[in-house]
Write a protein that binds this DNA or RNA. Structure first.
Lengths: 329, 329
DNA sequence: CTTAAATGTGTAAACGGTTACATATTAGTT
DNA sequence: AACTAATATGTAACCGTTTACACATTTAAG
């Protein structure tokens, strides 16, 4: 490993001077700057971030904690975070929590131990205490919070939109699939949908689901049609669940969207590739990731923040699991 | 921040002793061990990994470089790597290369600058030089290599299997979708399929595709049916492309699998949720990730390695885009 | 021409750990 | 009892940077 000392020796100056040219601070004569840069090039020196981090008590690392990268909603989020952080010269220390408080705490600790400048967390468990005594900024992503900076989509509005759209398109016996109770965004969607349906004169059922895993989703789907066979509209808690419902409905020979309309939530990439393609409420996952990254960087740079809570808009994506609405009707 | 010095002061011993109890090496009296541990608990001390890393010239970090976490094949890989690394006490520094040599090199550099103990790379560009002068172990994942340790699935076998299965099930005019030329695993699949079809008396076409992106996939699909409308069997370069083909075929009103059979590659999670569900060649992505992590840790621990190249088996997943074969026929 | 300010560079002390080495005490052997 | 080995602990050097401080030289100002 080539160190700053090697560069200093080769260019005949002190390590302090080398450091100064590398960081472009303090006075340094143009000639020596050139000499040093030449040595740097020749030796292919690049500074040891660990040493730098130790002295500065700040690395160029941020911690990113997700529930599970395997859930198709999160890769987009992660990419948004990474792309934006990369622009700012930051790298990502990455972990999956599985919504497990212990694992979460473990990751949080190692983030701290590695001098990350900040943490972006998309976990949803109740163990808020995990974040209480952190000495560094935290931004919550895909999660609402009043105490901490956070970036999230307007879930309630999304739930309302979904309900309105499916009603407008003529579903009369709707089943709402309510997502896991501890996942706040899922509850917001649910509340939004509930609000709209409660004020209408549409019959509806609520079915609780307790996870977003692929394997479980098919189970709920089967259960749904076994329990409420006359359902003609499903408001799913997310696109995974919606996909499973769609799958099961097709297996049962239901024609979609004629007999059954389905609206998902998230707009994960594969939703558009289903057949029929899935109508859904889109969360701008990539943008959410970017926003979270930008917010964290602003906080880190001590910039004035107008908005500690960033709510991003949600849009209805009108694909083929919903009927076309007659705009003139 | 509470340091080892604080612990030393509180427990009335030297920092060396504290270090010894924390690392459980060297002699230390049981009584002082207890005193120190008490101080550690009371102060909630946890060692600064950065300082440790600086002295030892080795962190507890590994670099993971993927082409794009947004491609649904990779989250599983990543999860396999992470879960296994976590068991060994390692954390993941994560980056997406977009198969861009410059970005790749940039990440590689920062990995090194952060004292990672090793790197797992799933990138496929030709810039092998990027890895030439690395002073730390590298394991390639989802990529074959003779020079470096690597973990990959038996792509050629997979290609052969796909071809055999589709022929056995009666397709007569097959189109092979050949994946991007610079992606070795895609070429292996293609070679395998080519081998089998060449030796059969089945008509077939080869169509080149140059990316695995969702957006592009639908384009290839349209082009496929425009160019070869009588195709009755498609061997897709991966499940994303297969999904797009399936989508387009359904849109054109083809009945599947009666008129058209499709076999994908990878078995990404959503393939089973399509309708009809996608027949495919399964790569054990999660296991591949785990194997790569294990291999890297073995190398790091200087264990004897029997196998520097780990080839994992591939399986045919017989779903509903292929016909049932009459086993007695 | 003198003096102050600006410029340029080096020395050494941090940062928070680990460990080689020295030293002291205790235990075990003849 | 004398000597050696094992146990226990502390001091200081080191890991590769950054930066406060000191000092020397140049430039600008009066």
């Amino acid at each position: 490993m080539v160190t700053i000392r090697d560069v200093a020796k080769k260019s005949g100056v002190s390590i302090a001077t080398v450091s100064r040219v590398l960081n472009a601070n303090g006075y340094v004569h143009e000639d020596t700057r050139k000499k040093v840069m030449a040595a740097v090039d020749e030796l292919k020196y690049s500074p040891n971030e660990v040493a730098r981090s130790l002295y500065k008590k700040k690395s160029k690392l941020v911690g990113l904690l997700l529930p599970d990268i395997t859930n198709p909603f999160f890769p987009q989020l992660a990419r948004g975070v990474e792309d934006e952080m990369q622009k700012g010269g930051y790298r990502i220390l990455f972990g999956n929590s599985d919504e497990n408080a212990e694992k979460e705490l473990d990751y949080l600790n190692t983030f701290i131990q590695n001098n990350v400048v900040g943490i972006i967390s998309a976990t949803n468990n109740k163990a808020k205490d995990n974040y209480k005594n952190l000495s560094i900024p935290v931004v919550f992503l895909d999660r609402t919070s009043t105490d901490y900076p956070s970036v999230y989509a307007d879930g309630k509005k999304g739930g309302r939109m979904a309900a309105e759209e499916i009603v407008k398109r003529g579903s009369k016996r709707i089943t709402i699939l309510k997502g896991p109770a501890h996942i706040q965004p899922a509850q917001d969607r649910f509340q939004g949908a509930l609000e709209v349906l409660s004020q209408s004169n549409i019959d509806f059922h609520v079915m609780s689901t307790t996870s977003f895993a692929f394997e479980d989703a098919e189970k709920w789907a089967k259960e749904l049609f076994a329990t409420y066979p006359d359902t003609d509209g499903v408001l799913a808690s997310n696109d995974i669940v919606a996909t499973a419902v769609l799958h099961e409905a097709l297996r049962l020979g239901k024609s979609i969207p004629e007999e059954l309309q389905i609206i998902g939530f998230d707009d994960i990439p594969q939703s558009s590739l289903l057949f029929p393609s899935l109508s859904t409420i889109r969360q701008p996952a990539y943008e959410m990731g970017k926003e979270a990254a930008q917010l964290l960087m602003k906080i880190t740079n001590q910039e004035k923040i107008q908005q500690h809570q960033v709510q991003l808009p949600v849009t209805f994506i009108d694909r083929n699991t919903t009927r076309k609405v007659d705009e003139n009707g």
